[in-house]
Design a binder for these strands. Structure first.
Length: 263
DNA sequence: CTACCGTTATACTTGACTGG
DNA sequence: CCAGTCAAGTATAACGGTAG
């Protein structure tokens, strides 16, 4: 702890942070200028009948959290504070304010409505993100990603000429919480491979102790890359119960991808 | 020194409530 | 119906002490 505080004091932290902020700002400028963000927001399967906080802000916030490697909504205010996300908003809507006496930097945001009781540190409450995410239909979301988002990639000519695609299925482990709808508990060995009942019977006691019941999903995806593998990105994605079979899903993904993007 | 264990603090979830 | 607020429940990390 003292070491980190010392590093903070000497400004090493600022360098890292501002560098990523610059990158993030560029990123959002780009997708905004190219109307990518609008396109994503227009096609997103919103569960809302009325829109107060705009959808593009929801999409942008999610992207920002992914860029920061954060997955918990309650960390959103932190992401806002340190990130380039605010730069998609004008200086009127959001600004950094340095307290004249203490030197503390806080964020003052306009917000999209007048429902707040407290001063806004972020353009919207983190619970707005949480609830919109929770209310989104999972199937519609996955369809959206595999069609509308794939079209955006196409419009940006993101696909390599050679057209190398990889079909993949992997296990997505989650905490053992029944709220993870549609997840199943399977027995895994210490290499993260599922163990069938017959295989488990044949095991020695020593092997058996290394097995663990774990709650999981199966994630079936279609990845795009080039020959030198400079990049990977998802063009289709579906999350299924962990014991589902991937083949039919993958074939459907390929079919749908060819249908929306073309050959 | 380190492996272990119980305690405490903090981070994260969750659902319910409120006022517009 | 919507987003902001609250309070209570869990999970996880940090801490401190102790035995080997």
């Amino acid at each position: 702890k003292p070491l980190i505080l010392q590093a903070l004091g000497s400004g090493e932290f600022d360098y890292i942070e501002s560098a990523s902020e610059v990158f993030e700002t560029e990123f959002f400028r780009f997708i905004k200028a190219k109307a990518i963000l609008n396109k994503l927001a227009e096609t997103y399967p919103s569960p809302r009948k009325k829109e107060e906080v705009p959808l593009w802000f929801y999409v942008a916030s999610n992207l920002s959290m992914r860029l920061h490697g954060v997955h918990s909504f309650n960390a959103f205010p932190l992401v806002v504070r340190s990130g380039g996300l605010l730069n998609v908003l004008g200086p009127k809507e959001a600004q950094k304010v340095t307290h004249p006496d203490t030197g503390d930097v806080t964020i003052a945001c306009e917000g999209f409505n007048q429902k707040n009781h407290y001063d806004r540190e972020a353009p919207c409450d983190q619970d707005f993100l949480r609830k919109l995410a929770k209310d989104t239909e999972p199937d519609a979301l996955m369809r959206w990603f595999s069609t509308d988002v794939a079209e955006v990639f196409k419009s940006q000519r993101a696909f390599d000429k050679e057209g190398i695609f990889i079909g993949d299925a992997s296990y997505l482990f989650v905490p053992d919480n029944p709220n993870y709808e549609g997840s199943v508990k399977l027995l895994f060995d210490d290499n993260d491979h599922p163990v069938s009942e017959e295989a488990h019977k044949k095991m020695t006691d020593e092997q058996k102790t290394r097995c663990q019941w774990r709650r999981c999903y199966k994630m079936v995806s279609l990845l795009h890359t080039n020959r030198t593998m400079d990049f990977f990105f998802f063009v289709a994605l579906k999350v299924l119960p962990g014991n589902a079979h991937e083949s039919p899903v993958l074939y459907e993904q390929v079919r749908q991808f060819v249908e929306t993007v073309g050959k």
